[in-house]
């Protein structure tokens, strides 16, 4: 996994609550058996005026002029500023894959849906929860100031504004460690092989019906 340490980037605002994963990456693109290439279809139904199809070249599709990510001032954005309950709905990891492939490295919101939040960490994408009034203020600043950038420092757990204000956020220790080091979680778990085997042996004795039923 790609490591995340410090990132400074242009902020793009997505001013709506309850953005669901169908909105982030519509279902027709889930037919892919790859992990990459979802960026051009991120927010497909909001971003384009026509209906997108998998495998299509998106460069000449008609863009929705009302969608902020299409505005020139937000080109190259890598920090997405969102409203509450971002990423609700399905478990599709294609949602963080699409955000990552587009170029986002961090997503800031007052709250996230649980599965999406977990999925982000597995892909080097940092979801940051800040209080609603702080997010409101960041929306105002990002909309008022063209070229508005935020800096995210994971090891210090702070978002730094252009004026130097530091906004702290919490992150669980394990996810932080994995993200800072870019660690393979499977490899880490496999270091616990003895614990897993010991658990399994006890379990097979107590609950034998959980073993061998499906062949």
């Amino acid at each position: 996994m790609k490591a995340f340490t410090v990132h400074k980037g242009l902020v793009a605002p997505m001013d709506r609550a309850n953005v669901d994963t169908d909105m982030i990456i519509p279902k027709q693109f889930l037919k892919s058996i790859k992990r990459s290439g979802f960026g051009p279809n991120l927010f497909d139904e909001l971003r384009y005026l026509d209906e997108g199809a998998p495998g299509q070249d998106c460069t000449n599709r008609p863009l929705n002029p009302d969608f902020p990510l299409n505005w020139s001032r937000y080109q190259g954005a890598s920090v997405l500023l969102c409203r509450e309950n971002f990423g609700c709905g399905s478990s599709r990891e294609h949602a963080p894959w699409a955000l990552d492939d587009y170029g986002f490295r961090a997503v800031i919101a007052p709250s996230f849906a649980d599965i999406f939040f977990t999925n982000c960490f597995k892909n080097g994408l940092l979801p940051i929860v800040l209080e609603e009034n702080i997010v409101d203020k960041l929306f105002e600043e990002a909309e008022e100031n063209e070229g508005y950038e935020l800096s995210v420092d994971l090891s210090r757990q702070v978002v730094v504004t252009p004026s130097g204000e530091e906004l702290s956020f919490s992150v669980d220790e394990f996810s932080k460690h994995c993200l800072l080091e870019g660690l393979d979680e499977i490899g880490l778990t496999l270091n616990e092989v003895d614990s897993i085997r010991a658990y399994e042996a006890a379990r097979e004795k107590d609950t034998p019906w959980l073993f061998g039923a499906i062949k």
Partner: peptide, 21 residues
């Protein structure tokens, strides 16, 4: 019972465990 993402699908296949909170 709960839903998981694809990275966790791979994690469960490989380790029979999930890292959870």
């Amino acid at each position: 019972a709960h839903g998981i993402g694809t990275s966790e699908v791979e994690h469960v296949l490989a380790t029979q465990c999930l890292v959870a909170k």
